[in-house]
Amino acid sequence: MKFRYEKENESKKITIQEIAKKLDLSPTTVSRAISGKGRIGLETKNKVFQFLEEYQYIPNTTEKTKKRSKNICVLLPGEEGHAQLPYFQEILLSVYDCFSAWGYGVLLVKTTSTNIGELMSLVEQRKIDGAIFTRTMEGDLAIRYLEKQKIPFVVIGSWVEEQVIQVDFDQEGGCKDLASVLLRMNIKKIACVCGDAGHIVTQSRLRGIRDAYQEAGVLMDEDLLYTGAVYPSIVEKDVAKILKKGVDCILCLDDNICLSVLNALHKSRVKIPKDIKVASCYGGKSLANCYPSITCLEFDVKEIGGVASKKLLDAMSGKVDYNKLILGYNVLIKESTM
């Protein structure tokens, strides 16, 4: 096994034999310390890993074997309940249909902004040839890790660096159009209820909404912006505050938040759209059977799963295309804002 040393633009390689010589150990002892296989003292194991950490050596898994696993993994949200949302399930099924037809297995991994242990385990065991992210977050550890390990991956969403393969919907443009329509309907006092502010999609959607206000020459009331609505209990508290402020409309940044808003309004016996209007920056299957029907943005989730799959297959074959692909949307005006 070889290790790669990376620091800024430097790139060096070191073998287990060279590590053993520097630490005055046998190559077998170093190999056992790194692999975790075989009996070895804790003090010796710590000595090896302190050396690797001090000089920033990381395993170069791409040199261990050229054999393909014929598996890819789909990264789903690790927060409680998020992976079960229809949006992520639709993407997962679309990716599965594509890769199973190409003779690949599809493994599932849950990650959060601070926990990528399951992903690391798959990579270290050489069980995957590539990965698809179903969302992007600020400072995503999984992206950095796969880049270092040279594992091809595609993100469904947006990322700040161009050298990452990206497929996304026009979140910013869609939310700008949706907010513009609401403003043209003379709905001026709009409260926005958002999820995690660290999610790239949240940031993109808010930019679009702000652009709509700016273009309309209307000042957006930042006191009516509620972030962190990640659980129904939080949404319920936000809705209670919103109702006291006499807003005209609640604009939800995703379908899951919208469902929680609708439930909170129902509990308070608030009628839609008579007492307050409601719209969502994403419709999806979650809102399909709501009454009244919800004004929303419509995205083709199955299509984006298929496009991301094709891009990953190409990347695993050495055909890397960093041109970001943006898919369209439809603005659906329904009863909830009439």
Rank of each mutant, 00 (worst) to 15 (best):
I234C: 09
Y87Q: 06
V235Y: 03
S233C: 08
P273Q: 08
A191E: 03
G117S: 15
K47E: 08
A131H: 06
V218L: 12
M1E: 13
K244G: 11
P292F: 07
H266A: 15
K274H: 10
A197N: 02
V109Y: 06
K277T: 05
S317Q: 14
A33I: 01
K274C: 07
G306A: 11
Q84M: 06
G157E: 12
K271G: 00
T62C: 09
E147G: 07
I34C: 05
K148A: 15
K324I: 09
D170F: 08
K64C: 05
Y104M: 07
K37N: 10
V74N: 00
K176Q: 15
S286Q: 11
N323T: 13
L265P: 02
R144H: 14
G228S: 02
T136F: 10
P59N: 05
H82Q: 14
G38D: 07
I14N: 01
E138W: 01
G139F: 13
V109H: 06
L313F: 14
Q125T: 07
E90C: 06
N46M: 13
Y57P: 01
N256A: 14
N60G: 10
M220Q: 10
Y87K: 03
Y291D: 12
N46A: 15
A83T: 02
E63G: 07
L75F: 02
L42T: 13
F99E: 06
A83H: 11
C290F: 10
L297Q: 04
L122Y: 12
I272C: 05
D300G: 01
F3W: 06
G105R: 01
F49D: 02
Q214A: 15
A264I: 04
D177V: 15
G117L: 14
K47A: 01
I132P: 03
N263S: 15
L287A: 01
Q214M: 12
I116G: 09
D238L: 04
Q50H: 14
V218A: 10
D97M: 13
L327N: 06
K12M: 11
V123A: 05
E303I: 02
V109K: 07
V181M: 11
I187K: 11
I58V: 14
V30L: 01
S121Q: 12
F153K: 03
V106C: 11
A216Y: 07
Q171H: 13
I19Q: 04
S158N: 15
S121I: 00
E118H: 09
C175S: 14
T227M: 10
L287F: 09
P27C: 04
G198N: 14
G306D: 09
Y329I: 06
R144K: 15
R207L: 05
S180P: 02
S309G: 05
V30R: 01
L327P: 02
R205T: 09
G208D: 06
R126C: 07
E18N: 09
I200R: 13
K12H: 13
G208K: 03
S113K: 12
L92C: 06
G139I: 03
F99Q: 03
M338F: 13
M338Y: 14
T61H: 13
G81R: 00
L75W: 03
R32E: 00
F3M: 03
K302N: 14
Y231N: 12
D170W: 00
I91F: 04
S293R: 11
L52E: 02
D221Q: 07
L85Q: 09
L52C: 02
I132H: 01
E303T: 08
A308V: 04
H199P: 00
L312N: 02
K285A: 11
R39C: 00
I143N: 05
D223E: 15
